[in-house]
Amino acid sequence: MAKAIALGIALFAFWLTLSGHYTLFLLSMGVASCGLCVYITTRMGLIDAETVPTQLRFALLTYWFWLIIEIIKSNKDMARIILSRKIELAHQFVLIPTSQQTDMGRVIFANSITLTPGTVTIETAEHALLVHAVTPAFVPSLEEMGRRVTAVEGAQA
């Protein structure tokens, strides 16, 4: 129930952002359409920890801040590789062990790995991710990233 209300509020905030016209008629139409969406989603049984991730901790914001700095660093390294006169690559497929308990945590970790240029998640499994790195220099920071994701993923739903 709490998740349904949270979904309704999020949908209405999205509607308000895209609309831009705030007359009584249009607002009531927006409320009605959001209510219909929540009703249909509930009937389809789609409201769970995956569609409405309210279990994520507030610390996710500080994690994003750390991730942005990490993205800037690896972008700089990647730009240096591209602009160097003779491109030197050492391709590798590396298995990165994951310590996350939930699917959501693993998704955040895999997406963060792909967000930092220089590393791409190729395949996922229960306790490890297969990662392609363009040189070995990009791999060491992934360990700390995994620890930080485990800290913010929240309780098992």
Binding site: A125, H127, A128
Partner: peptide, 13 residues
């Protein structure tokens, strides 16, 4: 093709 999801656990650990 991606159907042998559990084998990575044995192989990886």
């Amino acid at each position: 093709i991606a159907d042998s999801r559990d084998e990575i656990v044995k192989g990886g650990q």
